[in-house]
């Protein structure tokens, strides 16, 4: 396929994806904003006042980066898993499979769609957080790059979930039983310094812990993790997940009989 044709195909998938989540904005953009807004009010404002400082910052300041990252992770994942599974369910994925679009363009298009929603919700949450805390970004490069890379990781994970899913139950199992616990135990609401040694070690095995803390470093300038190590982990995840997706697409897993 010619480069120009590939770009048009990629753009088509991305526009279709953005159009989809924008069309159903009441389901895709509003609920995460309300949920995170409640976190700001209840945990940050009401409970946070009693907690005082966490990791050397006001509790509200401490949880803002984690909550932004949580919204990016959840929405990047859920956009891809629900959209791609919906394509499978309605069989409209066949439109793509019979066309000459290469697998990596299909995958990149859906990742970009997932990132667009993750970043859109992340932006809404960031704007909301300005009503509760004064944010001064300490390192713009780290802040932006960790959000983008994290969004790619979870868009890829959502794609794999969608490939293997056979029912709508299958696309809610991973977010409910895997993703949510990992996010809540990933240092969104607390500093790892509060944990006993064993749970510190367990946290070190949670990839989301590195993503949240690196993002927090970008905004607050303080982190529980080594930033270089965190970026290394993110890149390894992207390479492994992207390769797995391409291999599964080539085999036709969940798509071709």
């Amino acid at each position: 396929m010619l480069t120009n044709h590939k770009y048009i195909a990629f753009e088509t998938i991305v526009i279709k994806e953005i159009r989809r989540f924008a069309r159903i904005w009441v389901q895709t953009l509003v609920p995460p904003a309300i949920t995170i807004g409640l976190y700001f009010v209840i945990f940050g404002n009401l409970v946070g006042r009693r907690i005082g400082e966490m990791g050397g910052f006001q509790y509200m300041e401490f949880i803002v980066p984690g909550l932004i990252m949580m919204s990016v992770i959840q929405n990047s994942y859920s956009n891809v898993v629900s959209s791609f599974f919906s394509h499978k369910f309605q069989r409209s994925v066949e439109e793509l499979l019979v066309s000459p679009v290469p697998n990596y363009i299909i995958l990149s298009g859906f990742i970009a769609g997932g990132m667009a929603r993750g970043l859109a919700v992340g932006t809404i949450v960031t704007l909301m957080s300005l009503f509760f805390a004064d944010l001064e970004i300490q390192n713009l490069f780290i802040t932006v790059s960790v959000v983008l890379l994290t969004s790619i990781v979870f868009a890829l994970a959502g794609f794999i979930n969608a490939l293997f899913a056979n029912s709508f139950d299958d696309i809610s199992i991973i977010p409910t039983f895997v993703l949510t616990p990992l996010i809540y135990l990933g240092g969104v609401f607390y500093s790892v310094e509060l944990l006993p040694p064993f749970w510190k070690l367990v946290s070190a095995l949670n990839p989301i812990f590195y993503m949240v803390n690196t993002f927090r470093y970008g905004i607050l300038g303080s982190s529980d993790v080594d930033i270089v190590w965190a970026f290394f982990i993110l890149i390894v995840f992207i390479v492994v997940l992207f390769s797995s997706c391409i291999m599964l697409l080539r085999k036709g897993t969940g798509l071709r009989s």
Binding site: M1, L2, A9, T12, S86, Q90, S92, E94, P100
Partner: peptide, 21 residues
Amino acid sequence: VNFSQFEKVRDIVMTQAGYYG
């Protein structure tokens, strides 16, 4: 039928054209 039931008629054809570059 294997197109999205939620999309407009023109968008379905235009999207397919986009897949072919």
